[in-house]
Structures are given as structure tokens and as C-alpha cells.
Design a protein around this nucleic acid. Sequence first.
RNA 1: GGAGGAGUGCCAGAGUGGUCGAAUGGGCCGCACUCGAAAUGCGGUGUACUGGCGACGGUACCGGGGGUUCGAAUCCCUCCUCCUCCGCCA
Length: 425
Amino acid sequence: MLEVQLIRSDKDRILERLKKRNLSADELKLLDEVLEADDRRRRLQTELDEMKAERNTLSGQIGELFRQGKREEAEQLKSRVGELKAKLSEGEDALRKVVDRREHLLLQIPNVPHESVPAGSAESDNELYRAWEGRLPGLPDGALPHWELGEKYGILDMELGTKLTGSGFPVFRGMGARLERALISFFLDEARKAGYEEIIPPLLVNEDTARATGQLPDKEGQMYQAERDNLYLIPTAEVPITNIYRNAILDASDFPVKLAGYTPCFRREAGSYGAEVRGLNRVHQFDKVEIVQLVHPDHSYEALEGMLTHVAGLLQQLELPYRILRLCGGDLGFTAALTFDFEVYSAAQQRWLEVSSVSNFETYQSNRMKLRFRDGKSTRLVHTLNGSALALARIVAALLENNQTPDGIVIPKAIRHLTGFDIIS
RNA sequence: GGAGGAGUGCCAGAGUGGUCGAAUGGGCCGCACUCGAAAUGCGGUGUACUGGCGACGGUACCGGGGGUUCGAAUCCCUCCUCCUCCGCCA
């Protein structure tokens, strides 16, 4: 959620930046509507506060009069307070309405893109931030896509998942399951080495939690809901992990807070069918290690750089060809100010697969979350960041495809100590 | 799931209708004493919204929400959480 003070003080710049998101004229008008609602809110607030102050004074006097036994005078004052109360409850209704309206409007405004975000409306407008310098792996004729490799080696069974649950729920077996587990361990080990505290959070979250990181109301349709208990299955560990610090005031000395967590992620994503989403390309459940940082606003872009370096290091160790994109305004998530996507080349499909998204949310999440830090005598909102490090499903897809040989699938050296085998055959 | 008890500031803990944003103790910060430290003494120590250039004010918050009352931390309703006992259980 944008900070209203910023809209008030810096509207033109915000407007300019929001245009990169290709917002409609109506959407851009939201800024003015928010300011209008906020002005009204403040006026009402002041009026109400004054009435309440008067009521409080009168009530004090009434008490005093009763103590002195001056009943009649007290009764007179009571009737005055009675009038006041009628006006007060009217005003309170009005205030509630305008507060709700302000909130409602604010929730519809996406984060302000960072100055470096390119304008654009689609994926094709994303900026190639770091291209892959090396040669892309070519595969011999007869190379298989990962879903066929999975079947061939008995390590990944999509149909079984369909039987057990529905389409898009992969089942890993044998060496496939062990590979999955090894990758999770590898990513967690690397995160720890990079100074992240490991977290195992709940996989179900309540409404407040889902709202604070922006899944509600923006992406309600993306989450599976346990309706009976009003809980949501997490679409990413970002949700519970960032919310650890919801409604908190950090000390400046706490910075940077670095957290990492492995969780399965659940996404409804009413997807299409076809080659684009076959196998592990897009699934309803996948494993992911997420890294989260809470930092001082002055250092959030350094932190973002650091996260990019971390993710790049993982991909290098796995010997996967990757490139980094800077998302354009149109592709940028609702809550992010700047996002870099990592894509890995999947040789048999001959396409790039998104395996990580690293974002700085600046104060957008912390404002919703009331996550602040002590800055001298006052408090300020923290900057929050997160990134996948990494999302497993597509990494496995790329590993299977890129590393296939006539003898089997070769495991990257960096994780052999964790898999316990060098090749899947 | 059943029965009972409890939720107050950074922590412990008092407060059962008015003068309570809240005693007291601890912690923390500042000052004094000291060569320095400990001990001691004195002072300070919440958040949000809001008015004001500022000095300084106002309002709200004692688990969440609602109600009674001129007035609620205190009474009522409801939800949540925790504790104890019973049941069930990996």
C-alpha cells in the first residue's frame, strides 16, 4: 500500500512513474480520489476529536457535580452530552465510511516502479539485464523433454499426481525424490552460508497475514483456501516469513534481517494446457526456498544486488545457463517496485524457464504490515525484499533436460554429496 | 471435543465505574557520585491519528470486535489466544 503522505507530497513524480505500468486514466485518477478521501478523513477526524474532548470535559464535570451532590446541574450537563453523542455517532459513521473508502482506493493502487524500470506492457518489453555469455547447450537428436525423461527413468510421474489429486501435482519417486530433497538442502545450505536464518513456517496462513504481503485482495484467486477454517495455503514462503515481523518495530541495529525458508508452494493458477505448461513447467504445487530481507530504506537496493548475486551463484554451481531480466512496468508485480527475473535455459524444450523472481517492495508491504524501525525519536517503514533461491520444479526440469546423456542424467558436482549418486540411469 | 481459569506498557505485576496512558518493581536511556566500574541517588522511557511554523495541544489504544453508561482497563455480549484438568491422538 502506498503511503498517503508520499502521494500528497510527491504526486506528480508518482503519477509519472505509475504510467510505466500502463494504467488507465481511471486508474491514475485514483491518486486524486485518495487525496480527496484523505482530506475528508482528516477534517472529520479533527471535528470528532473536538467533540470527544468536549464530552470528556463535561463527563468529568458531571462526576464532580455528583460528588458535590448537585444533582440537578449534573442532569443538565447530561442532556448536553446527550446531544453531543448523537452528533458524535453520526460523525463516526461518516468517518468509518471515508476511512474504508480511502483504504479501498489505496488497495487498488500498485507500487510505484523504480526509476530504472523500463516502460512496457508485455514480457517482450522486459530488459535483458544480464545475458548468457556462454554457448547454449545443444542436444543430440532424440533428446527428450523432462516429462518424458521422468517417465523413462521412473523419477517423475505427472499422471500419478493426477490420480491422487488432479493435474499439476507432480509425484517424484526414487532418485527423483532424492534429487528434489538434495536441491532443497543445497539451497538452504547456501542461504545459511550467506547469512540467512532458516525458518520453517506454517503452510496455512490467516487472512491478516495474506493481506499484509499483498496476496489479498489482489490475488485471492491464486490461493487455495481452507474455507471451513478461513485459512489459505501459501503460494510462497514469502507470505508467512515476511509476516513474522508484521506489526513490529525493529531497532536499527537489527538490520539487515535475513530469513530463508523452504516450503511447498500452492498455486491455483487456472492454467491453460499444452506444451507451455507440460510437465513441471507450471504446476499447482512445487517446492521453493525463499530468501527474505528486511532492511534500512537507504540500503535496500544494495540488498537487492546482493540477492541477485546469491541466486546467480546457485545457478553457476548447478552449471545451468541463465539470464537475468529486468521486468518492465507492465510485467511488474502489483506490489513490487523493481523485480529481476532469472531464467534458465531448458535445452530439450529450447526455451527459457523462469526460476526466480527477486524483488524490492520498498515500503509497499511494510506499510500494510505496519513494519517499522526506530529512527531517532520517530519510526519509519522498513524496506522488504524477497527472492526465490530457488524454485525447484523448473530447476529440476532444466537439469533433467540439459544433463541427459546416452548413459543417463548427470548430477551436477555441487550437489552430489547430497544426492548420494552421480547419475540417474 | 468437555469443564474451569486467565489475557494490562519492553518484562513482571497492581488496578472492579470518574481525578487511570495506567501504581510498584525490574529492564533500558540520561545525569550525579567515581580515576574507572559496581552500588546508590535523581530524571526520563509506548504507538497511531490529528491541530499548530513552533512551543505545545487534542483524540484513540489495557487480546480483537460490539454493547451498557454522562463517563469503561473495570459491567454485559461475542470472537481469538494461553494455562490447568479430562477425552482423543502423531
